[in-house]
Design a protein around this nucleic acid. Structure first.
Lengths: 176, 176
DNA sequence: TCCCCCATGTAAATAGTTACATGATTCG
DNA sequence: CGAATCATGTAACTATTTACATGGGGGA
């Protein structure tokens, strides 16, 4: 259900096409949500049908028309209502930890390489978040003030990655 | 796909029925996976059909028969193979952070109560993990040694919850 | 009496992934 | 020439959630 509101939230901040949204999901909200382009287009159609979004087609040369979506009053009202409602926390599902839970079947070399590749992944993600953070810190002060909570979610993402990295590093050390 | 292996892993440690597994998911692996009883029964049927599980029916008085599942050699082999394979990290999907990202639509009171209820949830989860941790620390030394990696996943869960709690507390403070 | 625990399932709906499909432009 | 980016979608499959279904036993 939250994809719906993630889309509304992003379009509320700035209107855009399905393609735009897909990139914004990757580049600025990947620390709490992700979605494929297929999901995006389906959701946009649905929200448009329900009257929560306006759609303006922008003809382009050499490319398919771009469909610019933006919130209608109804869409904005629905978003404003949703943010006041309690949300159940997401259930955690982490395949890597399933593997570690069954880790007594791994020999030392397999375990070492599993930890290393996981460490590399999390370091990359952390770097990505920190780059985003730099951009926010260098942006317009008024925007920073308006979206301070949104910025805080990024800081949580950063802390969460640091927690993972520390855990993986300690585990690696203990292994040697 | 990981539910399959989460089930195999738990049955590898100790055989059990669908009902047992459901409880073990809640009580001892909720820090990295969760599943409903419906999912459990379906997965067990499938794994049994594929010859990865044995099933023995235990008649009981006044209760439906209990179906005790355990790994076959094939099931054990499949699990051992899977643990050596790389796993893509789970995409994060956190409805609460979607709400916070749209948090500029919240007034101070709504935000305060949202933060407080979230804080309470995470504190409960942390307490739950810490109780599990106590149980592990008081358990048989040989078991602790065999399942030290499994135990480490719990410690990560604890650290992750602490990260959340710290973040929520700082946010609450800043709000006042 | 009512609710929780035990113990099993089916069916329908929603959410998410993977595969397929098209076609121009730009950069190395 | 090949790969990435822009831009849209459909179809099939898998995973997860929610609702429905049954029924005995034990405790407040």
């Amino acid at each position: 259900m939250s994809l719906r509101y993630a889309v509304l939230t992003l379009l509320d901040i700035e209107p855009g096409s399905g393609y735009d949204l897909k990139r914004r999901f990757e580049r600025s909200v990947s620390h709490f949500w992700s979605a494929s382009h297929q999901q995006m287009y389906r959701e946009l159609h649905k929200l448009h049908q329900e009257g929560l979004l306006d759609c303006v087609e922008q003809p382009q040369e050499g490319k398919p028309d771009k469909k610019l979506y933006s919130l209608t009053d109804k869409g904005c009202a629905e978003l404003r209502h949703w943010v006041t409602q309690p949300t159940a926390p997401q259930k955690i599902r982490e395949p890597f930890l399933v593997r570690m839970f069954a880790g007594h079947h791994l020999d030392r070399d397999d375990l070492r390489s599993a930890l290393n590749s996981q460490l590399q992944l999390h370091r990359e993600v952390l770097r990505h978040y920190q780059e985003q953070n730099e951009k926010v810190l260098n942006s317009d002060a008024a925007l920073q003030k308006r979206y301070w909570l949104a910025h805080r979610t990024l800081l949580l993402g950063i802390e969460a990655e640091k927690t993972w990295i520390t855990w993986l590093e300690n585990l690696s050390e203990e292994l040697e």
